[in-house]
Design a protein around this nucleic acid. Structure first.
Ligand SMILES: [Mn+2]
Ligand SMILES: [Mn+2]
Ligand SMILES: [Zn+2]
Ligand SMILES: [Zn+2]
Lengths: 139, 139
DNA sequence: TAATTATTTGATAACTATTATCAACATGCT
DNA sequence: AGCATGTTGATAATAGTTATCAAATAATTA
């Protein structure tokens, strides 16, 4: 398991438990996953894990900013491990989410718009909804 | 009440009820409002309105695309009447939401990024989280 | 305007999602 | 190994959303 993750957990007095690591591993493999997806996946490894444990971990990991929430229109939130800022292509049909690199231009442009309103921008979120390559074809 | 709204309701066999109009009026006045905010506000006019009625109306209005959902990170969704595409400045402290015009540049740039992945973009959503003018000062 | 039909409303039950509680247990430290 | 503290799993408690249905209302027609 990644050193920097364990590092960050310890920094915030979060213990390195097998359940927690499996949740993080699931997020790594899925890229983006909902509570239910995480729960089902982690159960394959920890047969008796409680759904409450998943919720509690997600909350802790959000607090220490190891993961972030992805609130979606007309669907349940997904979660992802925080890495470089990026944007999302979200398929309205199959729900798949693909990362794309947020161009510098867009980010600069956005913070310019924000500061014009005397708003202190901290985070820019760009989501593009539509149909993914696959769903576009099999329609 | 706006003609085009009534028009659109009738087009979709949605009856023009006082409750429905008050919900739309609340959204107009608030700009962006959550279910609870709408419920509390509409109750001032229709003392006995049921929360279920608010939910049912929001669902109907979403379906006919008179309103849209605004899914937020770590907060309940807000709803707004659909008008020209625009972006949002979302204050992490007080929760206020301000509309800003999404620049043409950003939109073009976004759909370029999308089509490079063979993704059929339909809607671009840009949210900027941070501190609003007010909260930035009184900190 | 009265009758007819379809939709909506309000009350509330049912269901789903999330959080709180707590004793047993595991982790990290000395 | 022993201690302190955080975590887990079970489950109760809350909160949020959807389903049900009879009564009421809106729209249409005669
Ligand atoms: Mn991502
Ligand atoms: Mn808006
Ligand atoms: Zn798809
Ligand atoms: Zn603010």
């Amino acid at each position: 398991m990644k050193l920097d993750i364990i590092q960050k957990l310890k920094e915030h007095d979060l213990k390195v438990t097998p359940q927690r690591l499996t949740i993080l591993d699931t997020l790594n493999r899925y890229g983006h996953a909902s509570i239910d997806e995480i729960y089902k996946e982690v159960k394959k490894v920890h047969l008796s894990i409680s759904l409450a444990t998943v919720y509690k971990n997600i909350t802790s990991l959000l607090q220490v900013k190891l993961i972030k929430e992805l609130a979606l229109n007309e669907a349940k939130s997904k979660y992802e491990i925080i890495k470089e800022p990026h944007s999302h292509l979200i398929c309205k049909k199959c729900g798949s989410i693909e990362d794309i690199n947020l161009s510098e231009q867009i980010e600069q442009n956005a913070s310019k718009l924000a500061s014009a309103k005397e708003f202190a921008a901290e985070e820019t979120e760009l989501n593009i909804y539509g149909l993914c390559k696959n769903c576009k074809q099999n329609n």
